[in-house]
Write a protein that binds this DNA or RNA. Structure first.
Lengths: 194, 194
DNA sequence: ACCTGAACACCGTTCAAGT
DNA sequence: ACCTGAACACCGTTCAAGT
């Protein structure tokens, strides 16, 4: 006779994500997660092999959430018609997501994440909503190369911002807009040149 | 009568840095550090307030090491005469440093670092060796803004590379060179325009 | 001033037993 | 199948005592 489930994988992942954001990656214990979902600590291990495995699932949930934000920021048709505007909007949405989930964002780029095939797929799919914009901006053959200029800038900027690396003052919002514009207009010149 | 010191702060920091690189941020214990320097675990706490404080010191040592690499990659006079070449060389040195110290590099941008005044100073000084290049490239008034385009790209690129974010194949070395060139030549157009 | 052994509280994880 | 209490090994940290 099975014991009645008191919680679910999804509820545990949500509770962990909330604790992560509130307390930081090592600011909470399995016991606190268990408390949050009304269960005793060992029960978590019948659903997740380890704390690390649970954090991996949280990370995938965050990548999926980022994907949704990017989709909401610009539709494919807008990206095709006005790639500069569309990609700028997605860039701002990307930064907003990182600033709204700083501890989660750090987890998403933590090199300790286990490299499962499913994980790689979810991570890879997260930036897919931007691809039509790159294709429209520089053409199909250069879209990947263009993505590998803009996305490192986006990640690097927000990562540095979150780790307080911009200490020389000056408007950080303005610096972000300047950088975004500079890179996008630079990519625009790729249309013709090799 | 003082007990003879068996080790030193510097030796402990070096041993911790080695363990960090070999085993990852939470792959080693205070006991292993103590073993490595020939001391018992509690002795470490008479020198460093906590594991976190010791990791902070390791982080500062890494920033200082990065600074030395950047200084070695291009002299101020070369940066002034040939800013494109000089900054490219520093960009490559930056990436090489990150790839040679992947776990250390992750620590340098870990948002958990304590924000001491000394720490901020050391971190801030690390990229100073690049400044003459930015001044030569775009002029004094735009140097900071230019740095806030290139350095996020550098950090973002190597951070994504280290967390295996470039899964769509294609030469990653070539992508780095392409991005570096695109951004530097884009910045070059700032010389005249506002 | 720096070292040590002993102790403490906490934590991730396992396991046998319950339903 | 999922839950639980009890137990285990390990870890960061404290402390009183040694020199």
């Amino acid at each position: 006779m099975p014991a009645r489930p008191k919680t679910s994988d999804a509820e545990i992942i949500d509770a962990t994500r909330a604790l992560l954001e509130a307390q930081g990656r090592d600011g909470f214990s399995m016991a606190e997660i268990a408390d949050a979902v009304g269960v005793r600590t060992p029960s978590l291990f019948s659903r997740f092999a380890s704390r690390a495995a649970l954090l991996d699932r949280v990370e995938l949930a965050l990548w999926a959430a980022l994907r949704r934000e990017l989709e909401a920021a610009a539709t494919p048709s807008r990206l095709i018609k006005k790639p500069l505007e569309g990609l700028s909007a997605q860039g701002r949405a990307y930064r907003a997501f990182a600033k709204a989930n700083p501890n989660g964002y750090a987890l998403m780029f933590d090199p300790r994440a286990s490299q499962t095939a499913e994980g790689a797929a979810v991570r890879g799919a997260a930036l897919a909503p931007c691809l039509p914009g790159f294709v429209a901006l520089v053409g199909e053959d250069k879209a990947l190369a263009a993505a590998r200029v803009l996305t490192p800038f986006l990640h690097g900027f927000v990562s540095m911002e979150l780790s307080q690396a911009f200490r020389l003052g000056g408007g950080i919002d303005a610096a972000f807009e300047t950088g975004l514009d500079a890179i996008l207009s630079g990519l625009l010149t790729w249309r013709r040149s090799p």
